[in-house]
Simulated assay, not measured.
Amino acid sequence: MKALPLLCALLLTACASQPVPPGTQAPLERLSQGVVPGRTTKAELIATFGATRSVRFDSGYEAWVYQSPAGGGRYAEFVILLDPSGVVSKTRTRPPALP
């Protein structure tokens, strides 16, 4: 029984030290053509591009971020705002950071 608290502590430490996974990657052209504000749903995003990093707001809106390879180890970001009903409200492309 003394080993259980130690095992729990080790597991929690391992979880806390894991880096945040990057967003799902997809070509920017595919993202911009495949996501239509007012029509594309959360379920369609998951089926087409997979789950990715997201932030949920108290208002029910969610922001999802997909990455698009831009060369040289850099990535552009495709940011999607989902309304509370799960439909894309807006999109925005953020260019890759300068080296």
Rank of each mutant, 00 (worst) to 15 (best):
R94T: 06
L6V: 14
F49E: 00
T24D: 02
A3C: 05
T91D: 02
G72R: 07
M1V: 14
M1I: 13
Q25F: 00
F57Q: 10
P95T: 11
F49Y: 04
L31P: 02
T41C: 04
A63R: 09
P96M: 04
C8L: 15
A43T: 10
P84E: 07
C15T: 07
P99Q: 13
P5V: 08
A63L: 15
V88M: 07
V20Q: 12
A70M: 06
T41I: 07
A51F: 00
S17H: 12
T13I: 12
T40A: 07
P19H: 10
L81W: 05
A63K: 08
G71E: 04
D83L: 06
T48P: 01
L7V: 12
A9E: 08
L12Y: 04
C8A: 15
Q25P: 01
P5E: 10
T13Y: 12
S32H: 09
K90W: 07
L31W: 03
A70H: 05
L6H: 06
T48N: 06
Q18H: 11
A26Q: 04
A97W: 10
G38W: 13
Q18E: 11
P84V: 12
S32A: 14
T13M: 15
F57D: 08
A3V: 14
F78I: 00
T48Q: 10
M1C: 12
Q67F: 00
A9T: 03
L12D: 05
R30N: 06
T91N: 02
E44I: 01
T91V: 15
S17Q: 15
L31A: 06
T40D: 09
G38I: 09
V20C: 03
E62I: 10
V36S: 12
A9Y: 04
S85P: 03
P69M: 09
R74E: 03
Y66C: 00
P21Y: 02
F57K: 05
T41Q: 04
V55Q: 11
G38P: 09
R53G: 01
T93I: 10
T41A: 05
P96Q: 10
L81E: 09
T93E: 07
G86P: 03
E44N: 02
I80L: 13
V87L: 07
L82S: 01
L98E: 14
S89H: 15
L45R: 00
E44M: 07
Y61L: 13
R92N: 09
V79N: 04
A16Q: 09
R53M: 01
A47W: 01
S59E: 10
A47N: 10
A26D: 01
V20T: 12
T91K: 01
G72H: 06
L11V: 08
G50T: 00
L6R: 06
T48Y: 01
G34W: 05
A9F: 08
F49L: 04
C15F: 14
F78H: 00
I80P: 01
